[in-house]
Design a protein around this nucleic acid. Sequence first.
DNA 1: GCAAGGTC
Length: 934
Amino acid sequence: MAANGGGGRAIRVLNVAEKPSVAKTVSGILSMNQGIRIREGRSRYNKIYEFNYSIQGQSCQMMFTSVTGHLMEMEFEGRYRKWHSCDPVDLFEAPIHKHVPEDKLDIRKTLEEEARKCQWLVLWLDCDREGENIAFEVVEVCSNVNSQLNIWRAHFSSLIEREIHQAAQQLARPNQLFSDAVDVRQEIDLRIGASFTRFQTMLLKDAFDFNFSTDGRNLVLSYGPCQFPTLGFVVERYWEIQAHEPEEFWKIQCSHTSDEGTANFNWMRGHLFDYTCAVLLYEMCAQEPIATVTKVRQQEKLKYPPHPLNTIELEKRASRYFRMSSEQTMKIAEDLYQSGFISYPRTETDSFSTRTDLRILVQEQQEHPVWGPYAQRLLDPSSGLWRNPSGGGHDDKAHPPIHPTKFSPGESRWSEDHKKLYELVVRHYLACVSQPAVGAETTVEIDIAGETFSALGRTIVAKNYLEVYRFESWGGSLIPNYMFGQQFTPTSLTLESGITRPPPLLSESDLLDCMDKAGIGTDATMHDHIKKLTDRFYAIKEASHFKPTNLGEALVMGYDDMGYELWKPYLRSMMEEDMKAVSVGNKRKYDVLATCLQQMKACFLDARVNKAKLFQALEIFFDRTNRTGGDDQHNHGQLVRKCDVCHDSDLVLRKKPDGKFMIGCLAFPQASCRNVIWLPGSISEAVVTTTVCSACTPGPVFKIQFTFRRLEIPPNFNVHHLGCVGGCDDIMRQLTEVSGSGYRNFSNTPARGRGTAAPSRNNSQNNQQQATCNFCHQTGHSSSDCYSLTSQNRNPRSQRVNSSNGDSPIPCTTCGSLCILKTANTESNRGRKFYSCQSQGCKFFVCWVDSIPTTRGGGSSSATTTSRRSGRGGGQGGGDVRFVSATGDPVSGRSCFICGDPSHIANVCPNREMTLAPATSSTVMGPLVDMQAA
DNA sequence: GCAAGGTC
C-alpha cells in the first residue's frame, strides 16, 4: 500500500474478519491485549473490538468486527422463486440477484453503522476465493452507506503475531478476479441445481408410488453438481459389486515348523486362475519337496507417523477408528473449537508452519493421566523421541492443521464422542512430532523344484509414535533363523483355492477419499453432501457403508441411459478449472458463465426430451401411479413462444389429464388471456425442441416434435413430424382437419386405439409386493429379489457374465440352491462356460465346464454335474479318466505321481481320495502328504 | 420444496 504520511489525526478504520474468532484473535495480537475495549454489535455473535494501532506511521482508531461466512445469498428474482411460476428451463436465464438474508440483517446493520463512522475499511477475510468474495459482499454493504471509504485487504495465512502485524502493514487492494470466480460458481450451482431439481421432482414425484417412508417430509428429488457425483460414487461401487463374478484361483502354500517357531511361506506367483497349471506346478513341488534357502535378507524398516491432521483426515480417521459419521465428527469438532480445546476444524492444511511453537502444545499435555508421561518423554531431549513433523503438501494459507489448543483431562459436559475426538486430535498431534516406529524385518526366500516362496518375519525394535497413537498397529511375527543354502523339508505343502471377492460397499472414509480426489465439495462441505444423500433417500448407511436406495440407483441409471455423465465428477472438475482460469484472469467471468450455462441448458433440454429414460429406470423399481400430476412438466407446460394475444405471458405446450395436447397462455386462468391452440387429437407425444422456426414472427417460435398414432392419421402422413404452430405448417393444419382437435375428440368421439390398460400394465409388471415373481413367474420371491432380474434385466451394467439360457441348473453342493451355467467374460477366460451358485449368500464357484473330466473315447465334452471339490471327480472309473484343457488337448504327458498311471494326473487319481482331507471351502488338496513323515 | 459455499 502507499504510505499515508506519518502522525496527524487518527483515522477511524473498520476491520472485518470472516468469523468472530478471527476478529478476537487479530484484535488481541494488534492491540497486544492493551487498551482493548469490547462492544456488543447488533448480532449476538459478532462483537466489536476497539483499540489504537499504527499503520505505516498513521495513527488508527481500529474498530474490529466480523461476519459469519457469506453475508449474501444468490437468489432468483420475484416470480421465479415459486416452483410453478415458470418453466424450469427459464431458470437458466431468469434474473438473479444477491441479497442479505433475514438471519444476516443484524450483521449488515452493524457494518453499516460502523462504516458510516470510518474512513478506511480493512478486509481480514480468509485468503481463499470464497474469502475474497465475502470481502466484496462486505464492501458492497459498507460502500452503500459510505462511498468515501478507502478499501484495503489484509493478507494472512495464520494467526501468528508476526504475520498479522505484517499483514496490517502491507495492505493491498481486494482481488476482483478471485471474487468473480466465486460469482461464477454460485450462479452456475443455483441455475443448474434449481432447474434440474424442479424438473425431476415435478416429473417423477407424483408419477410413482415410492414405497418408502419419507418420515412426513416432502419428497424432493434434488440435483446438485456435488450431491449427484457423490451419489454416483456410491452407485458405481454398488454396480461393481453386482457385476462381480467370483473366479476361483489356486495357490501353493508352504509352511515350516521347527523348535524356533513356524514360518509361513507364500508362493511368489501369488495365485493362478488356471487350475491345470497350478496342479502341474504343485505336482512338481510335491514330487521333490526339498526346500533350499536362496536368500536371507535382514533390514531395518521404519513406519512413519501420519501427517498433521486436516479436516478430511479427521473425518476419515474418526469414521475408521470410531465409526463416527463425518457429519457428527464436524459437529463435535466445531463444539470443541468453540470451547477452545482444538484449533479451527475446517482446514486443508496438513503441514505446520515453521514458525509454530510445536513444543508448547506438547507441554500442555504433560498433565494428562494417560498420555501425559509420553508427552513428558517427548520433551526430554535425552529420549530422542522428538521429530519435526513432515508435511503432507497441502496448505490452504488460512488455517494451521487441526491440533489441541487447550489441555483438558476430559470435561464433565463432554459426551463420549467429545472425548474420543479430543483424544484423537491430541494423540495425532503427539504422534506427528514423534520418531517413526522401527522394525527389524527378515525376508527368507526358498526354492522348491524351481518354484520360489518367501516368508517375512518382523520384530518391532522401537515403537516410538505407536506408543501414543493407539489407533495404528504394526503387526509382525518371529520366524525361525535360516541360513543361505540351508535345506529342509516343509512341514506342509498344500494346493489351496480361493475365490475372488467383490470390493466392499464404500465406507464413509472411502467416499470422502473419492470426493477429495475428484474435487467434489470442500473440506467444510463434504460431510454435508454425504448427509444429503441420506436426507434425500438416495442412499442408506448400513454398518458404516453406503448403499444406494432404489431411488438413488434409478436416477443415476436414468441419466446414464441418456448418455449423460451428470452423475460423474467431470462437470464439477471442469467448473473448478474454469474458476481457476477466471481467478487468474485467463478467462472472463461472463464468457465462462455464458458457455457453461448454454451447455447445461442444452443438456437440460435434451434430458427433458429423453425423460422417458428416467421413467423407464424408475419403473424398474417402483409402481406407476394413476395420478395425472405425475408429469408436472406437461401440466405446467413447455415454452413454445411469447403469447401473441396478451403479449405479456408465454404460450406453453400442455398435456391435459385425458392425454390430449394443447397450447395455452400461461396467464390463464389467473389473468384474463384465454389464447389457446387446440392440437390434433391423434398426437400421442409432443415435446418442444430448441429448434426455432425461421418463418414465423414474432420469434422465437420453438418447433415441436410430434408423434401421431398411426391408425388415426392418413397412411401418406409420417407418424413423426417436427411441426410449427406459428401458422406456417401445412401438415399440422391438414392433420388437424383430418383427425380433429383434441377438444372435439374429447367431447364427441372416443379416441381410437386407446384403452385404459396403460397404467395397469405397469402396476402388474412392477408390483414388488406380490408373492409371485413377475419376471420368472415363480412363487416365493418378488421381482425385486428375482435373480434373473438382478443379474440381467434390472441392471444392464452387470452383464459381465451372462447367464446361459439353454442349459439346466444343477444343485449346489454347498448350499443346496441351484447352480446355473454362465459364460465368463473376463480377459483371461472369455467364452469359457462354468457353473456358479445363484444364491447371493453362497456364490459357490463349481467348475469350468471345459475342465471337467470326460470319459476317454466317449467323445462327450458336455458338462456334467460333477464337482471337483466334492471328491467325486469322475475318478470312479479308475484309469479311464483324463483331463482336457480348454482347447481339448491333454495337459501333460506326465504320469500320475500317486499311482504312476500315465493316463491321468494326480488330481483325478482314484487313489487320491485316500490321501485327501475332507473338502473345505478353502483347502482343496491338502495336506496332501505329511512331508516330515515321508 | 431447488445448489453450494461460508459459519454460529
